[in-house]
Write a protein that binds this DNA or RNA. Structure first.
Lengths: 173, 173
DNA sequence: CTATTTAGTTGATATAGTCAACTTTATAGA
DNA sequence: TCTATAAAGTTGACTATATCAACTAAATAG
């Protein structure tokens, strides 16, 4: 018995999905697993959501919890908790927002910057791995089509009933 | 106040990500949200993982918990629990596997078949929505590239061959 | 000034994913 | 055959992700 593979080799290894939905489920699961695995190898003890928030803060000057939540399209409650853990870990700091006393501006601490540098390296590494046998055209096409699909899914949520404020009652095509 | 939008309209709505990782995170989140929303509208009270398992059972004759886990690339513990809930809900049945007394064969009950018919309609509907402004070539390209990325991410787990010759090692667009 | 909205917090809950220990059965090999 | 190992499935514990509703405090429209 050749035990070349880590996974069960006695069954067919992994059927290639041809449906859009299965393709999506499988891709994202593999991607997230790989990401988790890699950051674990690099001894960066942060969940993926925290990493994305950190990245958002590092790339956006004068961001707030609200703007991070918008950018990540996540619930503000979830973001609050993530930010508080990053704060507790000393990776970010909240400073008073002179323009709005309800909110605070977020910025990386120096250890936050250090972690971010590592995370950027990890992201580059994984991106290189994902695209190693793809042409630049393919990568560009993938991003374009993905964004297009994303827009298609989002738009339907918003429009559909211009003058209806409840908006959740449409039978949805 | 015009409540045309569900989300905050006072800020820029949603910046288009140009990195592969952000694109992936955003796409899958939107997709899953839309899927959850749609099955909720259709009064199908099942989590997404359960739906995928059900679909796997419906499309695979003589499948077992193990083969479902493999196909979905999920932990067998997770699959066990999902299948037990589907069983409890009367959507599937386990029958003794004459070939192997450790496992049982899975099949849909008649209510499982009914739900599956609805779910197939939902999937078709969402797929149509996702691809409404895409050419067939784009959809095919998306599936091909996604599967390729998935393979790239999976393979590295097994062989860990760091040669990385890859003519086009562009460091993340 | 007052109504409403917005930013953020908190609690509760559901879903998802992972790991390890365990039982039962299958199977390879001495 | 006997035995060691592997495989199928279960269970417990735990972490991570997502969502909703109620809430406080500050901003703002009228």
């Amino acid at each position: 018995m050749s035990s070349l593979l880590l996974k069960d080799s006695s069954q067919e290894p992994a059927p290639q999905p041809s449906s859009l939905s299965e393709t999506l489920h499988r891709l994202t699961h593999t991607y997230k697993s790989r990401l988790r695995e890699t950051i674990k190898e690099k001894q960066i003890p942060l969940p993926i959501t925290h990493i994305r928030a950190l990245k958002g803060i590092s790339r956006n000057p004068a961001c707030t919890a609200h703007s991070i939540a918008q950018r990540m399209q996540r619930d503000k409650a979830q973001i609050t908790r993530v930010l508080n853990e990053l704060l507790k870990d000393g990776l970010i700091a909240k400073i008073d927002n002179p323009k709005d006393r309800r909110s605070q501006l977020l910025q990386l601490t120096s250890s936050g910057e250090l972690i971010m540098a590592q995370l950027n390296a990890v992201e580059q590494q994984i991106t290189a791995q994902m695209t190693c046998n793809l042409s630049e055209q393919d990568v560009a096409a993938f991003i374009r089509i993905s964004n297009s699909i994303n827009d298609n899914l989002s738009d339907q949520t918003l429009q559909s009933q211009p003058d209806n404020q409840s908006a959740s009652t449409d039978p949805q095509v």
